[in-house]
Structures are given as C-alpha cells and as structure tokens.
C-alpha cells in the first residue's frame, strides 16, 4: 500500500512514468477497504495467531485475504488523463488487460461491474481504484489458488452478503486459476504481463530512491499505524 502511494506521488510530480507493478504479499495479509470497519471485517486474534498481517487500503471495496502463495496482485499508477474520465469505464479498461492475460491461458473471464472479474459467474479477480491529484491508482488481485480455511478464519464474512446472493459457501462464488488450468504462478505472471503491456512501450525497473524512501516513511507513519488501520 505504501509503495503504491509512493509511486503515485512521483507520478503526480511527473518524476516517473506510468507504472504497472506485480507483487505478492509477504507475509500473507488481509486488506480492507477504506470504508470498512477493521473490527467488523477482520479476526485480529486469528491474524496474530497465524502471523497474518492486515492493512487498510486507500481504496474502497471489500476485505480481501491475500495468500502469499495463492494470488498475484497488481497496481496500475498513471495520470488520470490516460484513462476514461468515468470511474466505471476506467475499471473496464484495466480489467480488460486481466481478461486478455487470462485469455492467453485459455481462461475466459468476464468483467462484472462494478469491479469484479468472473469465470462462469464465479469471482476470480477483485479490483479497486482511487484517483487523487490527477493520478489514478488501481490495484487488484488475481486468484491462483485458494486457501478457503485460512480465508474464512481471518475474514468475518457477512451472512447478509452470502444470503443475499443465495449462496452457501465461498467455494461456490469464488474461483481460481488452478480450477481451470494447471499452470505455474510464473505462467500466470507471464500471461498477465503480456495482457497488461500489449501494445505499450515499457521497460522493467525497480523503485527509484525517492519512491523507496517515501514508501518506507508511509509504511511507518500510515499503513502500519493503528490510527490508520483502526480508523473506522
């Protein structure tokens, strides 16, 4: 989260190019949406017991369990003007890159407004976007594998949401790459990389010194602080 914000700041200052990141969470972690209550969404005692981290995002949306081995996360950080003005339309643009990537693996995903991707009606990717000072940040996750037991133990899943959709269990509404194709995580990464970068000029790079310094500062001052994480 801190890295995304640090990059956004450098994009705002025009110091770095529009940036696409792929990453994993180490240790595994729960992220909650900006408007969610930490206490209501996350089983903090269980997180502590299992060594699972938690953080509030600066984007809206729902709580997500990011398994270290079970997903690939991405961020797109770019000037707002490069994307459609409407938030719903810009979700569609970036989500199409994921669809293209999964398509390369022979997995047919569809965009499910507002911010999900589904395969045969089951969610395979969740995404969240914010815009600040002319910079768009969208991050999201693509499920590769699913540790349902751990996910259930750290997330306080709302009964209302489940009954609303008339579903019995998370396995009936969430899916993963491995359900469709026996590929490695590297294969998934390479397919997503192609989907995200096709037709674009790009180069590989690591964080600039300023981004690194800002990210460390933001992690300490904001994203690791109780003031932020327990804000709501």
């Amino acid at each position: 989260m801190a890295v995304d914000e640090a990059i956004a700041e450098q994009v705002r200052k025009n110091k770095v190019s529009p940036t696409i990141r792929f990453y994993k969470w180490a240790p595994s972690a729960v992220s909650i949406g900006y408007f969610q209550s930490l206490q209501d969404e996350v089983n903090l005692a269980k997180c502590k017991e299992l060594g699972i981290d938690y953080v509030r995002r600066r984007t809206g949306g729902g709580a997500v369990y990011h398994d270290n081995k079970g997903e690939i996360t991405y961020s797109v950080i770019a000037p707002e003007r490069l994307f459609p003005k409407g938030i719903r339309e810009s979700y569609r643009v970036i989500c199409q890159w994921i669809i293209d990537g999964l398509g390369l693996l022979g997995i047919g995903a569809e965009f499910m407004p507002i911010n999900d991707l589904v395969v045969h009606g089951k969610k395979i990717s969740g995404n969240a976007q914010t815009r600040r000072d002319g910079v768009l940040t969208q991050h999201g996750t693509i499920l590769y594998d699913l540790d349902v037991r751990t996910m259930f133990s750290v997330l306080k899943v709302s009964n209302e949401k489940i009954s609303d959709k008339m579903i019995k269990s998370v396995e009936e509404r969430v899916t993963r790459v491995l359900n469709y194709k026996s590929v490695s995580q590297d294969d998934l990464y390479n397919a997503l990389l192609e989907g995200f970068t096709r037709g674009k000029e790009f180069s590989f790079d690591s964080l600039t010194r300023s981004e690194d310094i800002d990210a460390r500062r933001l992690a300490k001052e904001v994203y690791r602080s109780e003031a932020w994480n327990a804000m709501r």
């Binding site: 949406g33 408007f35 809206g60 949306g61 938030i87 815009r131």
Partner: peptide, 15 residues
C-alpha cells in the same frame, strides 16, 4: 454516525 461498507466514494476522505 459512521457509514461503513465495501462501496466506493471519491475522494475517499470526504466521507
């Protein structure tokens, strides 16, 4: 009062 949920609202801090 606190308004909570998994919706989106921009800019976020204006909630």
């Amino acid at each position: 009062i606190q308004i909570l949920g998994d919706f989106f609202l921009y800019p976020e801090n204006k909630i």
